[in-house]
Simulated scan of single mutants.
Amino acid sequence: MASRGLAGKSALVTGGSRGIGRAIAERLAEDGAVVALTYAREEAAASEVVEGIRKRGGSAFAFAAPLGDRGDAGRLWAAFDEAARAHAREYPEHTADPAVDIIVNNAGIGRSAALPDLTEEGFDEVFAVNVRAPFFIVQHALDRLRDGGRIINVSSGVTRVALPEIIAYGATKGALDTFTHTLAKDLGSRGITVNAVAPGIIDTDVNADWLRGDAERAEWAASISALGRVGQPEDVAAIVAFLASDDARWVTGRVLDATGGSGL
């Protein structure tokens, strides 16, 4: 694994044990960043990601940081510091620096019910993970995020394509987009860029039941993209890597469509 434009940078990727988050963690490590990835329950999967990154010459560590309860952001950064110290003991060439250059708010709940069936508990849960957690993760990181840093939020194509069956989920991603462009204005004086990436249908284990097990649905999913195929996690990771790089230094407050032209 050759270090490239992110050498010397440190990155946090929430929900980095599988799917899009895994691909993002792997790509940022490939580009030279030391990657800290969080998981909620999938410790074995997170360890597999870390092991793979290290085998390819990259640097990464993982730690548990469930989201959705009050105080989760503070607990996340406390766990980050502890894991970074452990990583530095194992790899002395890496310091246990509490600072971070790149924050990728990827962890989220990808489900909700249609309006008639949505409970207050379900509404609160999806907003707690998808909106409140990223907000306070950033708030708690203001003193440790280096000037010139990057914040990248994983949004969704459902902010422009109405899907009533997941109405609360769509609302959370709309809120995340507003958070993105407002935060970009707030942190611009420090040279910190804030952007979002909005994937469409991506071939991950979350979608495996219907996407890989039903040829007709898979064909439909490919047909709605202008590029004629279903997206892969690596497609989204490449866009995140661009936004994390110096090449994107003049892009901020934007939501980059990562749907492959779905619904055009």
Rank of each mutant, 00 (worst) to 15 (best):
R160T: 14
D203M: 00
A23D: 07
G263H: 13
G74P: 05
G213C: 10
T172Q: 05
A258I: 08
P233R: 01
H87M: 12
A25P: 05
F136T: 02
R56V: 09
T119V: 04
L256T: 06
G15Q: 06
K173P: 02
V131S: 09
A40L: 08
A162K: 04
A11W: 03
D209S: 13
A29Q: 07
R132G: 05
H94V: 14
A244D: 09
H94G: 05
A25L: 07
E93W: 13
A96M: 05
N153A: 06
D186N: 13
I201E: 02
A88E: 03
E234F: 02
A215Q: 11
A237T: 02
L67K: 00
G170K: 01
V34N: 10
A73V: 07
F80M: 09
A215D: 12
L67N: 03
W210A: 03
G253F: 05
W250Q: 14
H94P: 01
A258M: 03
F136N: 04
A73I: 07
I239R: 02
A23W: 06
A83Y: 10
P98R: 00
G191W: 08
F135D: 05
D246Q: 14
A141W: 02
T119M: 06
V255K: 07
H181D: 12
I166W: 02
F242T: 04
A171V: 12
A83N: 10
I201A: 02
P116V: 06
D101P: 11
V161A: 13
V194H: 01
G68C: 07
R217T: 13
A141Q: 03
L118Q: 15
S17E: 11
G32N: 06
A29E: 08
D69E: 15
L67D: 00
T159S: 04
N106L: 02
D147M: 09
I151G: 01
D257V: 05
D31C: 12
L6D: 04
A222M: 04
A218H: 13
E219M: 11
E42G: 10
V131F: 13
H181T: 14
K55C: 12
I152G: 02
